[in-house]
């Protein structure tokens, strides 16, 4: 396995993580083109982004900027046309070629949170978290304990035996966060996780991401339109027309 740990890319200094640890993710010169000829659309244009472990990054931009395309490329479910994706020092994608078993990699290294909680409706809150662990070969009794611990940590242990239907939007989103954290992923990807929540709940969820990122040392990338809770993020990256607007800024600078 080729390791890209510690490499630097010239001209992208502001996109590099603030520490010298192995980045949670490196997306290097990622381009995504849909269609061809006259119908060709460049969704991502030579995008390079690094996120350090424990870093919480907000990805902002208008609709059609390419945020979700970048997120799905980094989530290994939408292969780029060119470029490289390295997660925890492991080259995962080179262009559209997967260098490893992507599903197994997602299972071990990635956590996902979406606009909708996307909980499995026939599983209880506890089981929704447990299933992610069992899929990763964690024995059932250990999976149950860890799932319960996570729910407790996120303050919804009392709803562990409820089906998603019986949970509020905020509670569902917390279960989704617990599921994303279950396998201690090196990277958590969130696509507008607060869109369905009120501002108070939305902020709570954003704070939750910051908390778990710092606690578990996972890199977190959140695609969001919600600018009310940007102070929670370590770094804010803006996109437009498939490109990252440089330089990226800290959350404190973004407010100015």
């Amino acid at each position: 396995m080729e390791s890209y740990a510690g490499r630097t890319e010239h001209g992208t200094g502001l996109m590099t993580p603030p520490t010298h640890q192995i980045p949670s993710i490196e997306a290097i010169s990622v381009t995504k083109i849909y269609g061809q000829g006259q119908t060709e659309v460049i969704a991502l244009n030579d995008v390079t982004l690094r996120v350090a472990p424990g870093e919480v990054v907000a990805l902002l931009g208008p609709s059609g900027a390419g945020k979700s395309t970048l997120l799905t490329a980094m989530a290994l479910i939408n292969p780029p046309t060119s470029g490289r994706i390295i997660i925890s020092g492991e080259l995962v994608m080179e262009g559209a070629d997967a260098k490893i078993d992507l599903r197994a990699f997602r299972r071990r290294h990635l956590g996902f949170v979406f606009q909708k909680a996307n909980l499995i409706p026939f599983l209880t809150a506890l089981e929704n978290v447990q299933v992610a662990l069992e899929i990763n070969d964690t024995p059932a009794h250990i999976a149950r304990k860890r799932a319960m611990y996570l729910l407790d940590h996120l303050g919804i242990a009392d709803r562990a035996d409820n089906l998603p239907d019986a949970l509020s939007g905020g509670q569902q989103q917390r279960v989704a966060v617990a599921r994303a954290l279950a396998n201690k992923p090196s990277l958590i990807l969130a696509d507008e996780p607060t869109a369905a929540l009120d501002s108070h709940r939305g902020r709570q969820v954003m704070e939750l991401f910051a908390q778990v990122a710092h606690e578990s040392n996972s890199g977190v990338i959140v695609v969001t339109h919600d600018t009310r809770a940007l102070d929670v993020f370590d770094r804010i990256v803006e996109m437009e027309d498939g490109r990252l607007l440089t330089p990226s800024v800290s959350s404190a600078e973004y407010g100015d």
Partner: peptide, 16 residues
């Protein structure tokens, strides 16, 4: 279908 897609996304093996 949606649940199966989710299971695939979080890495469930085909046998699951």
């Amino acid at each position: 279908i949606h649940d199966i897609a989710l299971l695939k996304l979080i890495g469930a093996r085909n046998r699951v």
